[in-house]
């Protein structure tokens, strides 16, 4: 562990954070060498699925940086980034990958801040140690479930319409209260996460509801509700009975990964 050098990927938006990193360079602010940079035009380009995938590829940490709120070069791109990353980080932090994804705002004039943020994140990852994915199957399963949650068209649809519905309103002209919208979004997030957990925990053999409840730590009643939806989506099918308990089989390829 002593010679552990974290491998960290940073997504930097062209207009603020990349420029902030440039300024850190021009000002010769020294920070650890662990960061590798992917430049995107806007932090809004960063798909939470890609962030999860980056961790799945075996990197130790991912940091997404963008313009400060209200300073986005593309007006509102970072609002979407914020919403997407907030939800992603919430789920990631429920897995053994806790703390390995971070969202930070760094402006073009904040060279010092860029260096400080990168140093701090590198220290955090160094303290967390190498990614557990190689050794901990549970971590991989949990991360796959998070990745699939954010691939869900339903969740992506609700996330994408969040600001439209709270700020501009529905086709009938009513604006949704942010609290109400937030609640609806959380419900979708929870449901999609539960379904992804079912898919990735079920394994290849048929499985009963109580067993799924044990594996996913989701109450059996909820599992049943999700299974009925997933059967309609052809992601799960009925595969006989184990005594009185019906057995469910997850369709091959139901999970994206």
């Amino acid at each position: 562990m002593a010679d552990f050098e974290p491998r960290i990927l940073g997504f930097l938006c062209n207009w603020c954070s990349y420029a902030g990193a440039d300024l850190a360079g021009v000002s010769r602010m020294q920070y650890p060498t662990n960061l590798r940079v992917v430049r995107v035009m806007c932090s809004g380009r960063v798909d939470p699925v890609v962030v999860a995938d980056t961790l799945l590829k075996g990197l130790d940490g991912v940091i997404v940086t963008g313009c400060h709120i209200n300073d986005c070069h593309y007006i509102s791109g970072n609002f979407h980034t914020q919403k997407r990353m907030q939800l992603l980080i919430e789920l990631i932090d429920q897995t053994p990958m806790r703390g390995r994804v971070r969202l930070e705002w760094v402006s073009a004039s904040e060279g010092t801040r860029f260096a400080a943020v990168m140093k701090d994140f590198t220290d955090t990852i160094r303290a967390l140690g190498p990614t557990p994915l190689g050794t901990d199957q549970a971590a991989r399963t949990a991360l796959l479930a998070v990745r699939d949650t954010f691939s869900s068209p339903h969740l992506r649809n609700v996330m994408g319409k969040y600001f439209h519905l709270t700020e501009r309103g529905t086709v009938y002209g009513w604006k949704l209260e942010p609290a109400r919208m937030e609640k609806a979004l959380r419900e979708v997030l929870r449901a999609e996460h539960a379904r992804a957990l079912i898919i990735h925990n079920a394994g290849t053999a048929p499985v009963t509801v109580p067993r799924l409840a044990e594996l996913t730590r989701i109450p059996a009643a909820e599992i049943v509700r999700h299974l009925s939806v997933m059967m309609k989506q052809s992601k799960v099918s009925l595969a006989g009975h184990d005594g009185a308990d019906p057995l469910f089989q997850v369709a091959p390829g139901a999970g994206v990964g």
């Binding site: 995107v40 035009m41 806007c42 809004g44 380009r45 960063v46 798909d47 890609v50 070069h73 593309y74 509102s76 791109g77 979407h80 997407r84 869900s152 068209p153 339903h154 992506r156 649809n157 996330m159 994408g160």
Partner: peptide, 13 residues
């Protein structure tokens, strides 16, 4: 289109 890519990162499909 200004090319921010926010739509691409959010497309459900």
């Amino acid at each position: 289109c200004k090319g921010c890519g926010t739509c691409a990162a959010g497309c459900p499909r």
